[in-house]
């Protein structure tokens, strides 16, 4: 069986953004979505590009160029979508996050926030 692909935190966020955007996932929209998901942290566009390149190299996402568009000075958009390996990696990451959240909720109570200076 293939070794599961390990994802960094930011890679998980970028994959989530691509998944959420569906057919409309390209540089500008992915950056906006990643910024929304990462609040209050500020996300620079260059980091999103570098991560998209890395995810493409890992075979987790696929990209293609659209037709040229006048609102972009006649340049194309590079659209992204998840590959099956990317979907699997994201699902594994989500399950790991879910297990972590469950463990935290068991300790602190569901929906409860741990007081800043307790314990």
């Amino acid at each position: 069986m293939a070794e599961p692909t390990s994802l960094g935190n930011f890679e998980q966020v970028v994959l989530t953004a691509i998944l959420a955007l569906g057919e409309e996932a390209y540089g500008v929209t992915i950056h906006a979505k990643v910024a929304e998901l990462s609040k209050p942290k500020r996300v620079v566009m260059g980091a999103v590009y570098a991560t998209l390149d890395r995810l493409t190299d890992k075979g987790l996402v696929r990209s293609w160029l659209s037709d040229p568009r006048p609102e972009r000075g006649g340049r194309s958009r590079r659209y992204f979508r998840l590959e099956p390996a990317g979907e699997r990696a994201l699902r594994d990451a989500a399950q790991a996050a879910r297990r972590m959240i469950d463990a935290i909720e068991r300790s602190w109570g569901s929906g409860a926030r741990r007081p800043a200076n307790s314990g």
């Binding site: 500008v28 950056h31 972009r72 340049r75």
Partner: peptide, 13 residues
Amino acid sequence: DAREAVLGDLWER
């Protein structure tokens, strides 16, 4: 290899 898409994104923003 990044010119087309990145320049378009910068233009759009």
